[in-house]
Design a protein around this nucleic acid. Structure first.
Lengths: 109, 109
DNA sequence: AAACATGGTTAGCATTTACTTACCAATACC
DNA sequence: GGTATTGGTAAGTAAATGCTAACCATGTTT
């Protein structure tokens, strides 16, 4: 079952978490390596990773005591789909309004 | 200046606000008309609309005492762009890993 | 002008969020 | 076995969030 749309959006709604995803853009990273890039404690990063996990935006792979996190694009699929249809609908609506205005101009009562 | 990515995502990270955007999918709506669809007071809706306004996901048009809200797809452009590149990068990475695994299988040391 | 309609703003509240410090569990290393 | 390393968890806290009730401002209608 995919995470809800608002859960995914909420997970993305924090600059720290966006930066974490940015850090995972290349290869997978250990928690420690991720945390090094931030001016906050490791537990804080751990908690952010939990939120991203719950939103299914990342996944973990344990190797010994190290936990390697990687981003999982699938988690973005739902939001992506919503955004596309919403976008398309909005453009259709704008096109419709433009056409209507054109018609009004052509035949003003 | 466009709203920041996390501001937009945060605005989307609430089911009520997602529903409001859904209600604005068709035509523009007055605040009262929007509020009718929800089991909460009008001020609450007003506050949600403020968040959406700040994220530039909606715009208002005043007509007398009525305020007509409409969704503004432009506000989603930034998030959309981020999502696309992030998505593409992730797919490239997956393809790269698959290729690497294939190579490892072909010539295991 | 008086009464109504519409909707933004304020103050107050309970809950959630983003942290910190302290602690615990599990594996690696000697 | 003892001791680092690595990272998740718990308790506590300050700030932000999502509401409500009360109020105010503006425009409309008669």
């Amino acid at each position: 079952m995919p995470a809800t749309l608002d859960r995914v959006a909420r997970a993305l709604g924090d600059s720290t978490r966006l930066e974490i995803l940015g850090a995972l853009r290349g290869d997978e990273q250990t928690v420690g390596a991720i945390a090094e890039g931030f001016a906050m404690t490791r537990p804080a990063i751990s908690q952010h990773l939990r939120v991203l996990l719950d939103a299914e935006l990342v996944a973990v792979r344990a190797e010994g005591t190290r936990n390697y996190y990687r981003s999982t694009p699938d988690g973005l699929a739902g939001l992506r789909a919503w955004l596309e249809t919403f976008w398309d609908d909005a453009l259709d609506r704008l096109a419709g309004e433009a056409a209507k205005e054109e018609a009004d101009k052509g035949a003003p009562t």
